[in-house]
């Protein structure tokens, strides 16, 4: 899932300082599961902001609503009737949701309530670890299911580099070498020949936002054609 963490309070407070009526919008999916931006976190942040602004003699009126998802206009539409009552919006969705909300209401100042930190697995309650950088050219089939883009400090598709050191990465003794782990796993599976496979470098040059259209679907403007 997409994982995020609450922005530092002082930063948030500073961003919305000039506004008197602010709507705080949570997201009911990824950021709810990772305890960063769901209904509860919206309520906690609002309670904090309310107290801090009272202490500053600059009271604020705060609204709270949590949508099913913010990366979907269908759910963002629920805000249409209420957005007019507010000077600004805080979105506690991931970076994707925040942008989609801002796009729907281009006249409204929209502020991020969280810092989006990646695509991660749930290791324990409240503990998440990044596993994928959404590179768009997955090599897990060649690497024994270990992502070198995320787990290798240099993101090497073809590793290891010369810095690999008895299972550790050269950046730190606390950091396992991803390519060492890949070697171990492939060797256990008797598929070590795969490590000799060469993966073409990814075209990182001239990056534009990537589009994903699933088979059988079209862009809305092509739908009629």
């Amino acid at each position: 899932m997409i994982v995020a963490k609450r922005k530092p309070f002082d930063e948030l407070k500073e961003m919305i300082k000039p506004y008197k009526k602010v709507l705080n919008v949570g997201c009911g999916t990824c950021v709810s599961v990772c305890l960063a931006g769901g209904e509860k976190e919206v309520a906690v942040l609002n309670a904090e902001l309310d107290m801090a602004r009272k202490l500053d003699d600059n009271p604020i009126e705060l609204g709270a609503v949590t949508l099913e998802r913010q990366c979907d206009q269908e759910y963002l539409a629920e805000l249409d009737d209420m957005i007019g009552d507010y000077d600004a919006v805080v979105s506690m969705a991931c970076g994707v949701g925040i942008q989609f909300l801002a796009e729907r209401f281009p006249e409204k100042p929209v502020f991020p309530g969280v810092d989006t930190t990646g695509l991660a697995v749930n290791q324990d309650v409240g503990f998440y670890e990044e596993r994928c950088r959404s590179c768009g050219a997955c090599v897990l089939g060649m690497t024994g299911g270990i992502c070198p883009v995320t787990m290798c400090a240099k993101g090497l598709y073809n590793g290891p580099c010369g810095g690999t050191n008895k299972g550790k990465c050269e950046i730190s003794q606390d950091q396992p070498c991803a390519w060492f782990q890949i070697h171990e796993r492939l060797s256990k599976q008797g598929r070590l020949d795969l490590i000799m496979g060469y993966k073409e470098p990814v075209e990182w040059l001239d990056q534009v936002p990537r589009m994903t259209i699933q088979p059988g679907y079209k862009k809305p403007e092509e739908e009629k054609a």
Partner: peptide
């Protein structure tokens, strides 16, 4: 810790 952030 939240209260400390707020100034209480």
């Amino acid at each position: 810790s939240l209260l400390e952030e707020v100034g209480i």
